[in-house]
């Protein structure tokens, strides 16, 4: 889901830096110091998840886990995903430094949207409701992230809307896998460590 260097127009890159800067600043403001280790854990998971390849028929893709990260961290997903993307760009050459803003906006916004839409049913609902909400959060976060990537590509006149539609369609199988992973992770955390999800133990 990373956009690489040299593809987007300079105006889009600049807009990405501004929006991502505001998002990360807001996320840091909302991050309690006691939650920092949790943010680091989630950031590490996101950083490493990109190395896990999944075979999907003739092609393959890699995990992002933005849905569960959004559900666990809430607003703190902004700095967590930003740091992980920065390290991925520097160490793995995924994405890039100039395009870091746009990639942060695409993925972190999807993670926080998952938190805002599905956070409440995950925390206060029964185990079944939490599992189904987490599945929907994982699935829709991937599609929203892919849609944002497609939107940035379309705005840069790169392949226009056809590319965006192809991108979203290609991420449906990954969304289903991430939805299942999110449902498993959230159900496990709700049973064993509900405090991680912001619930009283």
């Amino acid at each position: 889901m990373h956009i690489s260097e040299g593809i987007l127009a300079p105006q889009i890159l600049a807009a990405g830096v501004v929006i991502a800067g505001a998002e990360v600043a807001w996320g840091l403001k909302k991050t309690d110091h006691d939650k920092i280790v949790q943010v680091a854990m989630a950031s590490s998971v996101f950083f490493l998840a990109s190395l896990i390849n999944i075979r999907l028929g003739p092609s393959s893709t890699h995990l992002s886990l933005i849905g569960p990260i959004g559900l666990i961290l809430g607003w703190s997903a902004f700095p967590a995903i930003f740091v992980a993307l920065l390290l991925q760009a520097v160490l793995f050459q995924f994405g890039g430094i100039l395009v870091l803003g746009v990639n942060t906006v695409s993925m972190a916004t999807a993670a926080v949207a998952a938190h805002l839409i599905f956070g409440r049913p995950v925390r206060s609902g029964s185990l079944k409701i939490a599992a189904s909400s987490a599945f929907a959060a994982g699935f829709l976060a991937v599609l929203l992230g892919a849609s944002l990537v497609g939107m940035f590509l379309s705005l840069s006149d790169y392949g226009m809307l056809t590319a965006a539609k192809t991108l979203v369609a290609a991420h449906i199988p990954l969304g289903l896998i991430e939805g299942a992973a999110a449902a498993f992770m959230i159900t496990f955390l709700k049973r064993t460590h509900p405090d991680v999800l912001g619930m009283a133990r």
Partner: peptide, 14 residues
């Protein structure tokens, strides 16, 4: 090696 380095950087920040 780079993956270990990345995780190490994150926890060094913490």
């Amino acid at each position: 090696w780079r993956a270990v380095l990345g995780v190490s950087v994150i926890f060094n920040i913490v």
